[in-house]
Simulated assay, not measured.
Amino acid sequence: MSDNRIPMTRDGYDKLRGELDRLRGPLMIEITQRVATAREMGDLSENAEYHAAREDQGQLQARINELADRLGRAVIVDPSALPKDTVVFGSRVKVKDMEFDEEEVFELVGPGQENPEKGRILTDSPIGEGLLGKKKGQVAEIEVPSGRIKYKILEISAAKID
């Protein structure tokens, strides 16, 4: 587990907290009952229902651990109190792709609020990290899995994070 703090809004935190509560509560109870019911069916070495339920239980526990870790490292940030002239968590950034001469808009958000289809990217994603700290007019050179991207910062404003 990492010591890195994770910025998120109160809404993002509450959304993850709600998911964690749901996973620890009703979902874990349901899977535990499936394991118990399958165990009662007899020979565990050849019991496919038991093995499937145990695998589901393990995956659920891994997700619970991940969410608990994120929430434990969360730092609640009020985006309205952040600088408006620098790309930071909670910024809405209009950029120009220098290679393709196309404009894109990104909102830098925390866990639980990401939605790449809507341009909402995590601050710790490659593009998010590459944009952080930049000001209007600067060029961000970002290493991504498909190569290198150059974005010119055109506008910075506060994201409308819900």
Rank of each mutant, 00 (worst) to 15 (best):
N4W: 02
I6W: 12
I6Q: 11
P7K: 06
D14V: 00
K15D: 02
K15I: 10
R17I: 00
R17M: 09
L20N: 00
L23A: 00
R24Q: 12
G25L: 10
L27K: 14
I29L: 10
T32M: 12
T32F: 11
T32N: 15
Q33C: 10
R34F: 13
R34Y: 13
R34C: 04
V35E: 14
A36I: 10
A36W: 10
A38D: 12
R39C: 00
E40T: 09
M41R: 15
G42I: 05
S45P: 00
S45D: 13
A48N: 06
E49Q: 14
E49V: 03
E49F: 15
A53F: 08
R54E: 15
E55R: 14
D56R: 13
Q59Y: 11
A62H: 02
R63T: 03
R70E: 09
R73N: 15
R73L: 15
R73A: 12
V75L: 12
D78Q: 11
D78Y: 10
S80N: 08
A81C: 05
P83N: 05
D85M: 01
R92E: 10
R92L: 14
R92K: 11
K94S: 06
V95Y: 03
D97Q: 07
M98V: 13
M98P: 00
M98I: 12
F100G: 03
D101E: 11
E104L: 15
V105Y: 00
E107V: 04
E107R: 11
E107T: 12
L108M: 06
P111E: 13
Q113F: 05
E114Q: 09
E117I: 07
G119V: 04
G119N: 02
R120V: 00
L122H: 14
S125C: 01
G130P: 06
K135V: 01
G137W: 04
G137Y: 09
G137C: 07
I142M: 03
I142W: 06
I153C: 09
I153G: 12
L154N: 02
I156T: 02
A158M: 07
A159S: 11
